[in-house]
């Protein structure tokens, strides 16, 4: 088997904060985080919000610094920003003063591609995400789903090897979300990239991924990784099959302990509701 694309070994990250009494304390976000991402695979990291999964992604993107352990990309320690990675954020991060086309071309502009060339490439990716005819619109004229399509086109346009996606569909309504999941699979099928996809939705992780990694509560580490042996191409109806429900149950069992533990912990009062909603959601889905 080929060497893994990304290797995280005993990775840790902590920050300094002041507690209620004003004392300095170290807040560990990640601890003993081990993960290997294979070349070309679609891997989801599943965990309740606050478990540190976005922190891992920020470290991987070069936007945050690890405080311990190793992080290798293509066998080399990651230093700063990796230009072979594209990041898609939940909040779209489109430039409001640029048209859709100019937004898609940003990464190419940063790479010094000539204007004519980058607009031509941007048009290809505009078409890829199904936004023909919206080239000269501004982001505020688009719906959330369309904005995220633009953001995906932007991160693909400069042809990175790895796509990091940080809960990209979390802010979208259920229908748009499912449409974009299928779209993403279609795009992934034509442009084989390694995708690391962060989510707190069981269904999303299972529907999209080759493998799902479940994280523990904070300080986060990978608790369990399992393969999703569902045939591709995956159609929306897949969500109703016995096999899918089986995986959902399996993922929920891995996640449930982390969620219930947290609700008993008074320190997590601020995010209490968040955990509960996930617990309810999971419970409901298992009951289906």
């Amino acid at each position: 088997m080929a060497a893994p694309k990304i290797i995280a070994r005993d990775l840790s990250m902590e920050y300094q904060a002041r507690d209620e009494a004003g004392r300095e304390e170290r807040v560990p976000v990640l601890e003993g985080f081990d993960l290997q991402v294979r070349e070309g695979e679609f891997l989801s990291i599943l965990g309740p919000s606050g478990c540190g999964k976005s922190t891992f992604m920020n470290i991987l993107a070069g936007l945050a610094h690890k405080t311990g352990g190793d992080l290798l990309v293509d066998g080399k320690p990651l230093q700063g920003i990796n230009r072979n990675q594209g990041v898609v954020f939940q909040g779209y991060a489109l430039l409001p003063w640029r048209t859709v086309l100019d937004n898609i071309a940003v990464g190419l502009e940063i790479r010094g591609v000539s204007k004519a060339q980058r607009l031509e490439t941007a048009r290809e990716y505009l078409e890829l995400v199904g936004l023909n005819g919206f080239a000269s619109r501004y982001p505020h004229e688009l719906s959330g789903g369309m904005r995220q399509r633009v953001a995906i086109a932007r991160s693909l346009a400069y042809d990175p090897d790895v796509l990091l996606m940080d809960e990209p569909f979390a802010a979208l309504d259920a229908q748009t979300r499912e449409t974009l999941q299928s779209e993403l699979l279609r795009i992934w099928d034509t442009h084989k990239k390694t995708i690391v996809f962060i989510t707190h939705s069981l269904d999303e992780a299972i529907f999209l991924s080759d493998r799902v990694a479940v994280m523990t509560q904070r300080p986060g580490r990978i608790k369990e990784i399992f393969d999703i042996d569902l045939a591709r191409p995956r159609l929306p109806e897949l969500r109703n099959t016995q096999a899918f429900v089986h995986y959902r149950q399996r993922a929920w069992e891995a996640l449930r302990d982390e969620v219930t533990d947290i609700t008993r912990e008074p320190a997590a009062a601020a995010t209490h509701q968040n955990w509960q909603s996930i617990a309810t959601l999971g419970g409901y889905r298992i009951g289906v």
């Binding site: 594209g86 909040g91 991060a93 940063i110």
Partner: peptide, 18 residues
């Protein structure tokens, strides 16, 4: 300035001038 816009540009490899 929205930190997300900065992070997004950084993640694409933007330098300080850009």
């Amino acid at each position: 300035v929205d930190g997300l816009l900065i992070n997004s540009a950084l993640s694409m490899g933007a330098n300080r001038w850009f």
